[in-house]
Design a protein around this nucleic acid. Structure first.
Length: 430
RNA sequence: GGAAGGAUGCCCGAGUGGCCGAAGGGACACGCCUCGAAAGCGUGCGAGGUUUCUGCCUCCGUGGGUUCAAAUCCCACUCCUUCCGCCA
């Protein structure tokens, strides 16, 4: 959530920056929030003054009792009781307005970085750079979609996945399953130099899913386990971000970095019928996520580092990729500045989004209440959070099945994966 | 699932209605001492809000309640520990 204080000190500036998201209703919500915040401050001042009088009178009652002045003590008690009643009425009004403000604030998106390009939708996202694609010719044997190759080689069995779990679930078999696991291992190993590996819970509380921004607005996108009031994580970003929820960190410990392999669960409620074939979009998939808590001034450089790490892994895998800048109209609710990495899959002739790397400024940290203290200084500030996919398995796997398909129909295993694949160098028909 | 005990500041820990935002210790910071360090001594040391008048308000797991007054009493919940049951 954004800092309410900005609405008091700089409402016009916030409005101007929020306008770039091209959602007119947002500006109305900003005004509403500012107004509610103003009322709340009046209530607070009033309450403080009542509390003060009650506190004073209560102290007097104690003293008067000790001095044996019963009549005066009773008078003070009566007076204090009146203040108490007044306070109760005020507290009820305050609670109501607080809740109204909270509900609005939870739905107001993050302030966009000035660096994010203007644009209405993903179609306006600029290509920042392309690697391994320009001028490269793809052979006919690479122009086979992975769902055909996968079935032919017996490593992709979505038909049975559907029998087991329904549509949009995938099942990898044999060398396909091995390669999926190898990709995770590769991504973890490539980032182990700087990130602590975590194996987090993948079922989380409502509070945890709210901290990262999925709730309350995007409840339909997540699987919920109502009986136990738990949610399936859509990404390891969710539990990793909440590791230090409610904690105050030392500046010296920043940036604090975590990485995690986890399954990810998504209802894909808004995308029924899109990319349903093969491995492009499933309800459950594996991903390795990298994440950092940072001091604000560290954020921008870390964002570049994260992009470089994700891109470096694609390069190591020998996949053509490009880096995309996310424009103002396409930036997610919690995002301050983001880049996507897409790999080219010649078989389906598509650029597949395999990584999204984002800087959230203090938006998530404020929701999760993660702060840090600067060395030798009093007070605290919210940290900045960043995260990105180090590697999203299914689409990378799809890209490998297409880019590495040989003329005989087999698929060569990229060199960097071979150590993780029990010596398999190529996947041939069974 | 059943039973018992517990949750206090960065950590440990005292505190069963007013004099408690909270003893004491540790850690940490600064100063003294020292060639330097350790030890000693002194000072400081939770967070947030409001204000700038260093005053006021809030926070002792969370949420409610009782009271003139709650860390302290009552209720509910959450989490932790131990034991039993169950079970990978």
């Amino acid at each position: 959530m954004i800092d309410v204080r900005l609405l008091r000190t700089d409402l016009e500036a916030v409005r101007a920056r929020m306008a770039r998201r091209a959602k007119p209703d947002l500006l109305v919500q900003l005004d509403n929030a500012a107004a509610l915040d103003g009322r709340l401050r009046e209530f607070a001042a009033e309450r403080d003054s009542i509390r003060r009088q009650v506190n004073d009178l209560s102290k007097q009652v104690g003293q008067l009792r000790r001095d044996g002045k019963a009549a005066e003590a009773d008078a003070a008690m009566a007076q204090s009781r009146e203040f108490g009643d007044e306070e109760k009425g005020l507290a009820a009004k305050t609670a109501e307005v607080e809740e109204q403000l909270r509900q609005i604030l939870l739905r107001i998106p993050n302030i966009i970085s000035d660096e994010a390009p203007d644009g209405a939708s993903d179609e306006a996202n600029p290509v920042i750079r392309v690697h391994g694609f320009d001028g490269v010719a793809f052979d006919d044997h690479q122009r086979v979609p992975h769902w055909e190759t996968g079935v032919a080689l017996g490593i992709l069995d979505n038909e049975r996945a559907a029998k087991i779990s329904g549509a949009m679930f995938t099942m990898l078999r044999g060398a396909g399953a091995t390669m999926a696991r190898a990709l995770c291992q590769l991504a973890l190993d490539r980032n182990a130099d700087a990130f602590e590996e975590v194996r987090p819970p993948t079922l989380v509380t409502t509070a945890t899913l709210t901290s990262t921004g999925q709730l309350p607005k995007f409840a339909d996108d997540a699987y919920s386990i109502e009986r136990d009031d738990l949610w399936c994580i859509p990404t390891a970003e969710v539990p990793l971000t909440s590791i230090s929820a409610g904690e105050i960190l030392d500046e010296a410990d920043l940036p604090k970095r975590f990485m995690a392999y986890s399954p990810c669960y998504r209802r894909e409620s808004g995308s029924a019928g899109r990319d349903t074939r093969g491995l492009l979009r499933g309800h459950e998939f594996d991903k390795v996520e990298i994440l950092a808590y940072a001091a604000p001034e560290q954020g921008r450089a870390l964002l570049d580092e994260f992009v470089a790490r994700a891109a470096g892994t694609m390069e190591a895998l020998g996949l053509p990729y490009r880096v995309i800048g996310i424009c103002s109209g396409d930036l997610g609710q919690s995002h301050h500045l983001s880049f996507d990495i897409e790999v080219y899959a010649p078989g389906c002739d598509k650029w597949l989004e395999v990584s999204s790397v984002s800087w959230f400024s203090d938006y998530q940290a404020r929701r999760a209440d993660i702060r840090f203290r600067r060395t030798g200084q009093k007070g605290t500030e919210h940290v900045h959070t960043l995260n990105g996919s180090a590697l999203a398995v299914p689409r990378v796997l799809a890209a490998i099945l297409e880019n590495y398909r040989q003329s005989d129909g087999s698929v060569a295993v990229p060199d960097v994966l071979r150590p993780y694949m029990r010596g398999i160098t190529a996947i041939g028909p069974k």
